[in-house]
Structures are given as structure tokens and as C-alpha cells.
Nucleic acid binder design. Sequence first.
DNA 1: AGTAAATATGTAAGCGCTTGCATTTGCAAT
DNA 2: ATTGCAAATGCAAGCGCTTACATATTTACT
Lengths: 339, 339
Amino acid sequence: MSKLRSVPTLDDVAKRAGVSTATVSRCLNDPKRVVATTRERVMSAVEALGYTPNFAARVMAAKRSFTIGAIIPTMENAIFARGLQAFQEEIHKRGYTLLVSSSAYKPEVEEEQIRTLVARGADGLLLIGHDRQARIYDYLEQQKVPVMVAWSFIPGKRTPSIGFDNRQAMMALADEVIKLGHQSLAMISGMSQGNDRARLRIQGVKDAMQMHGLSPETLSIVETPYEIENGAEAFEHLIAEDNRPTAILCGNDVLAVGAVRQAEKMGLRVPDDISITGFDDIELARIVQPGLTTIHVPHREMGRKAASELIEMIEHSKPGQSIRLDTKIVSRHSLTCPH
Amino acid sequence: MSKLRSVPTLDDVAKRAGVSTATVSRCLNDPKRVVATTRERVMSAVEALGYTPNFAARVMAAKRSFTIGAIIPTMENAIFARGLQAFQEEIHKRGYTLLVSSSAYKPEVEEEQIRTLVARGADGLLLIGHDRQARIYDYLEQQKVPVMVAWSFIPGKRTPSIGFDNRQAMMALADEVIKLGHQSLAMISGMSQGNDRARLRIQGVKDAMQMHGLSPETLSIVETPYEIENGAEAFEHLIAEDNRPTAILCGNDVLAVGAVRQAEKMGLRVPDDISITGFDDIELARIVQPGLTTIHVPHREMGRKAASELIEMIEHSKPGQSIRLDTKIVSRHSLTCPH
DNA sequence: AGTAAATATGTAAGCGCTTGCATTTGCAAT
DNA sequence: ATTGCAAATGCAAGCGCTTACATATTTACT
């Protein structure tokens, strides 16, 4: 009772090769369990029919999907794109497929997408940053889906993470800035709500100030979404303050580029009139004039390692280790001593 | 014989609500087919159990996955990222999920990914550009998977497409360049092999030259991968030629930015010593100094429309229409008349 | 040649859901 | 009260695959 000219199934292959479906299945999934002669027969039947296994059926029967889900805040920022590309290359090498969604920085969207990916049988999940509701972690645990957090390294959390110490990295940069003689600092940050990376970067600047005997309360902070235009607006706002800062540290390169452009537009020279720094070291940072002094993050390495660690967790039900990556300050021309 | 503390299934919900699985299923998929009182009972059982439907099972039974696959050449170029983001937002609104893969500009990888996505039951596919083996289109047809091609508008093809006329757009820009007085042109193109967009852009330049009585053979072309560094190298190469061009048209903004940077490094002023143009109008084009004169492409609109057209095709088995979008030249400062 | 062990293949029971069809229920019209 | 019909619900057959277990075949020895 086969449907007319329909997509071939395992059964069709089995009949054509004169074997049972079990043999065909084994042939496809674990060829060495089948003797060479039959294997050939099966394979040529597969070939002849143009058979492709039905994924849903396979997942359902095997309870494995060879799929890994990733949810990133946005596809439009090069940071995530680069790391994710490396992640995908690595898992692909190991026979997995990537499912990406972007949450547009909205926690409720992220939660929904997590559920969707799990329902789709994702064998593991890559998430950005630690900040999210506890019930999500409960759910993930209940469903027994291994999770790796990236872009943030915080050991001792419920979920293993790979990334860098955001606070530390930003502190090192702020330290540099202060040592150059800047006393009046400002910061343009991404929205820190539900975003541990942003929050920790702010903390880093404050800690550096503290360390140098500057009062952290004097740091003016603007929080804004991560777009070039927002950086520009924030800059305009900060520059209008009574105690105009001599250096502005930005939560990422995109914001910094916006600030640099706005400075230029307002006739201020960077860095002579004001210093500006970024974070991430994306392409934009090299291209903008003057080149951005920023923090280089090893995105590709992070993506790659996140992949292999996550796959370890999946395949050996290991607990998963946190991995700390180093960042380094890239000095270009947007930072100098105050005049 | 239920497994201990396992993930709840439809059956569990049905039992708890005291109805059949069919009713629960209807409740979830088409609530109005179930009377309000039972619906409530079912819903609270769902709630209480924390039930999430098993996707694979649903796909298998319904032969619909509410999944759309997209394969892009790379995630690392902002062009695709932006359009894709819009695409994903739109399909999400309509209840579909996006599956993205990137082929790294490799046709064989793309083919494999197409098969993977189809095997995963994708209800439709978004592909970039028309150029690919006929057997792939055969396969897609046999499997009855609707396909939309984007980033390229070529009517009358087997597959509907949405995008702009690459030849036309580039021709308009080249026309502008020539009208400004440039006689000696060069081009830095992406690899044209298997890439109709790149090929048509080259053609556009040649056609404009022809139109103005310039011999298209005099156009020196360097084909290179789409990275900033490649643009720089290509520039260096072109500038060393006997008949040094006065204007270089680039296949995209990334290459153009590479060229601009290299010019600067070599002590050439853009546009006074040499004019350079881009294509796409990504952020980079605004940020680089001097701003790039380039072709603006309505990426978000393209993504959005590709989504709705593809969903039409899926839901009403419509043949699918090709949609042509307009591009426009954005004049910034990298193009002027030759001196 | 005969036997046990190892290897190869077949049988069939699900996996969790949707849906065509059969049955029951509710309710308006007689 | 009946009857008739529409609306609501239940029944059960798959969807295409994997895999534990049973069976058949080969291999390696004695």
C-alpha cells in the first residue's frame, strides 16, 4: 500500500535490498555491524531510491537528535556571529547540527525559545550569559538537557560557563585609563538588567576606581541598547554634564564607535579632547578613525571550546567544566592621557 | 509502566484530565474544537504537569514541522545577518521557527545542508542566490519543499526569488562613476564561481562601460574571498598595474573597506587620488573614513517579504512569486571625479 | 566432523503524537 | 417524550525509525 511516488522509507530500501529494516538501519548508523556484501547491496538500494532518513522518526526512536541549540541576543552584532560561526563549525565536525535563535535581548523571548529548542529534542544548549530566571534552570535540569553558558565566565554556578571574566577585563582597562591620568570617567553601558556581562563590566570600572582612590560614585553611567546610534546619543548626553569626563569607557565596540562618531560630529577630537575605549575588538574597532583602544576577546576560540565541552557533556553525561579565557587590551589610538 | 519521573506525555495529560489523547491534542492545536469546560480541565492538567509537546512526534504524525530552514554563505557578514534577522522575526510571528546553517560559500556544504534541513522536515527553505546544481532543484521538487531564493532577483527561473537586480544596480553605479569622468576602471569582486550575485555585478560594470563606449576588456578584475584583508591585497595588486585605475568598484562593502584602508596605508588619498565604491551599505560603510559611496540594499524588507511569500507558498501550496526590490546609490565621500 | 563461541540478520515492540471515522452527548424542534 | 442533527469526544491506526531480543549463520577449535 505504498503511496504513489512518495518519499522512500527504510522499508522501501529494505525490500529492494532483500533484507530487514533492522539491517538497513544498522548499515546506516553503524556500518561495521553488517557484513560487507550485504552492506553493498543495501547501499546501492539507498542510492537507487535516493533515500534520505526521516529525521523526526529517527529522533523519536533513538531519543537523540544530534542537534544543538543556541540562543543569542542578536545576530546583528559581529561578536556573537563570529563566536557562533566557530561553534557551528566545530559541532558540525562532530556530526551535530546547530539550531540558532535570537532573542532580541528579551528574556521572555529567550525563555520561549529555550522551551522550543528542548521540545525539538536538542541534545544540548548554548546560552549567552548566566542571568535568567531560576525556573528556567529547573526546567532544563528536569528535562536533563546539558547547557553551556558562554561569553561569561563565572565558576561555581549551577551551569558551567566558558568565557572571560568581564569584571576583570574591564578593570584592567580602567586601570590603564586611570594610570594615564584620567580622573573624571564616564561609562556607556549596555542595559545591565538581566545581563551579567554588562553589569560586571560596570563593576570592573568601579573597582578600578576604588583601587586608585577615586570615588566610584563619581562615575556617570548611561545604560542604553547596543546600537551605534545609542552610543552617539549617550555620548552627547555625557558630554553635556557639568563635570565633563576626560575618558569614556564603553560597554562594547559598537557603542564606542557611536561615541567616536558623535565626538567627531561635535568637533571634538578623539583622543586629544576626549578618550574613548571599547570592548570586544570587532572589525569595526579597527576601521573607525581613530582606531579603538579596546579589549580583545578570543571569540573563535570560545566558540570552538564551548562546542567541544558541550559535546563532551552530551556524549558522556559529564558534569561540564567551566573554562576561563584570557582577554587582552589592544591599544590603538582612541585613548591617551588627558590634556 | 511509566518511567520514573520522566517527561510527561500527552497520555499523562489525558489521564489526569480524564479525557482521551485526541481531545488533549485538539485542545492544544485547535482549541475551538473543544468545549470550554473540558478545555479548562485539560489546560490545567497541562499546567500542572509542565507538559511540553514532543516535537519529533508531532512532526511525524502531522507531517508538518513549522520549521523553515535557511542556508546563508556566512554569518560573519552583516548583510546576511540583517536580512536574516528580519526574516526570522517575521516567520516567528507566523508561528514558525528558523533553522540556520552557513555554508562558508562552499557549494558542497550547501548541498549537504539542504538535504539535512529537508530530512529534518523543514516546511520550506530560504536559499541565497540562484546558482546551484540542477540536481538540487530536482531533489527539492521531488521532496515537494517550497523554496525561496533571496539576495537576487531573476524572474523566469524555476525557483521564485526576491531581491534586486544585481546587474542593474551595479550598472547604475558604474554609470555614475563613468559620468564623473573616470575612464580607467577596475573591479574587486567576490569569487564569481557559483555566485550569480558576484557575476552579475561584474556584468553590470561591463555593460555600463559598453554603454559609454569604453571597452569592457579594459576592466581589470580581481576575484577574491569576501574579507577585509582580501580587499586590501586586491587593491595593492590593482594599483601596481601599468594602467593604474582612477576608480575601483568593489563587489561589496567589506572589500571596499579593505581597499580604502590599504590606500591609506600606501599614502594614497581617497577619493582625491583614487575613487572607491562599495555595495550593500552595511554599517562599516558609514564608519570608514571617508564614508563609502555604495549601493543601499533594503535588507530588512527583503527578509520580511521573503518570509511572508515563503509562508504563503507553504500554507497554500502556491507557486510563489518573484519580487523585485529597488536599490539606490548612497553618495558619501569615497567617489569623486578624477584629477 | 562436531561443537561452542562469535558474528550476522530478523522480528517486533515501541517512541509520542495526529486524525479519519465511529460513537456519544446536548439540545432544538416536533 | 421523541426524533434528528450538530457538536464534542473517543478509538485506534499509523507516521518511519531504532533496538532488545531471538534466531540463523559463520568461524575457530578440538
